[in-house]
C-alpha cells in the first residue's frame, strides 16, 4: 500500500511542480505574486473542457486552445502588474486577489457553478505491477509533467533567453546593467508562465473537478512549492512538489481525505515561519 502512496505522490507531485513552475517563474523575474494563478489554470481547464465537450476532439488537441487562453489572460495581467507601485509584492497580492475574483465570476457566468470533469475513458484503465496499480491517467500525468519540466529546464539552462531570465531572477539590477531588458524579461516570464499554465490546465481538468472557485487550492500549492524552493531552482520546485504531494497522500491514508487541504496550509505557514524574511531571505 505504501508503494501506491509513494507512486501516486510522485505522480501528483510532478504535476504540482508543473503547476508551480509558472508561478515561480513569474515571481522570480518580476517579484510579483500572482494570486490569480489558480484561476488562470482553472480557466485553461474550462477551455479544454468546453472544446472537448462541444467538438469531441481528443484531449491532445485541447492543449493549444488552453495555452492560447492562458496566454491572453496572462499578457493582460502582465500589463496590469507592470503598472503597480511599490511595495510590489504586497500590492501584487491585493491586485491579483481582485483579478482572481474577477475570473471566478467570469467563469461562473460562462460555465455556471456545476462541477465539470474531462473524462478520458482510457485514463481509468491501467497496468498492474504486482500489487502496484498505475492507471494510464497517472502515467500520462507523470510523463507530460516531467516532459514539460524537462523542456523548461533545457530552456533555462541552454538558451540565451533562459540565461537572461536566470540572470534577472538572481539580480535584477545587475542584469539591467549587463544590458538585459528587464521589462521584456517580465513579459517573457508571463508568457512562459502562461504556456506552462495552459499545458497544465487540461490535465488539471482530467484529475480535478472544475468549478469557478477551484483555483484557490492550486494557487496555495503553487505558493507553498515556490516558497519551499526559493527562486530560480527547478530542482527545488520538483522536490517541493513531491514532498507536498507525498505529505498529502500520507495525511489522506492516516487521517482521511478531508484532512488533505490542511497539509499545504500547514506546510506554507511552517515554511514562512522558518524563513520570515521571505523567499529572498536577505536582511535589509
Amino acid at each position: 500500500m505504501w508503494t501506491t502512496v509513494v507512486v501516486s505522490g510522485i505522480t501528483l507531485g510532478s504535476f504540482y511542480t508543473l503547476i508551480a513552475m509558472g508561478f515561480a517563474l513569474i515571481f522570480g523575474v518580476t517579484r510579483t505574486f500572482n494570486l490569480a494563478h489558480g484561476e488562470v489554470l482553472v480557466l485553461a481547464g474550462y477551455a479544454a473542457y468546453w472544446l472537448w465537450k462541444t467538438s469531441g476532439v481528443s484531449l491532445l488537441f485541447t492543449f493549444p486552445a488552453a495555452v492560447l487562453v492562458a496566454l491572453v489572460v496572462c499578457l493582460i495581467l502582465q500589463r496590469l502588474f507592470s503598472r503597480l507601485r511599490e511595495p510590489l509584492e504586497l500590492n501584487s497580492i491585493v491586485m491579483s486577489f481582485g483579478v482572481a475574483i474577477l475570473l471566478q465570476n467570469g467563469m461562473l457566468f460562462f460555465f455556471s457553478g456545476d462541477y465539470r470533469l474531462i473524462r478520458v475513458p482510457t485514463f481509468n484503465q491501467g497496468l498492474h505491477f504486482n500489487t502496484l496499480y498505475l492507471s494510464y491517467g497517472q502515467l500520462t500525468l507523470l510523463a507530460l509533467s516531467l516532459l514539460v519540466i524537462g523542456l523548461l529546464y533545457l530552456l533555462m539552462r541552454h538558451t540565451y533567453l533562459g540565461k537572461a531570465l536566470r540572470a534577472t531572477i538572481q539580480d535584477r539590477e545587475a542584469a539591467a546593467l549587463a544590458g538585459i531588458n528587464v521589462g521584456a524579461m517580465g513579459i517573457l516570464a508571463f508568457a512562459i508562465g502562461a504556456i506552462l499554465i495552459g499545458l497544465a490546465g487540461p490535465l488539471y481538468g482530467c484529475v480535478h473537478y472544475l468549478y469557478p472557485t477551484a483555483g484557490l487550492q492550486a494557487t496555495l500549492l503553487a505558493i507553498t512549492i515556490t516558497i519551499f524552493a526559493g527562486v530560480g531552482r527547478i530542482r527545488g520546485l520538483i522536490l517541493g512538489g513531491w514532498i507536498l504531494a507525498l505529505a498529502e497522500s500520507c495525511a489522506v491514508v492516516l487521517f482521511g481525505a478531508s484532512w488533505r487541504e490542511l497539509v499545504g496550509a500547514v506546510m506554507l505557514i511552517t515554511l514562512l515561519a522558518l524563513r520570515p524574511q521571505g523567499i529572498l531571505g536577505r536582511e535589509q
Partner: peptide, 22 residues
C-alpha cells in the same frame, strides 16, 4: 505570522484560514 511582514504576512493569513476550517 507576526514575525512576517507585508506580502508574506498576507500569504500566511490566507493559508491560516484552512486550519480552523478543516
Amino acid at each position: 505570522c507576526l514575525r512576517l511582514r507585508g506580502a508574506y504576512f498576507a500569504l500566511a493569513t490566507l493559508a491560516f484560514v484552512e486550519i480552523p476550517k478543516v
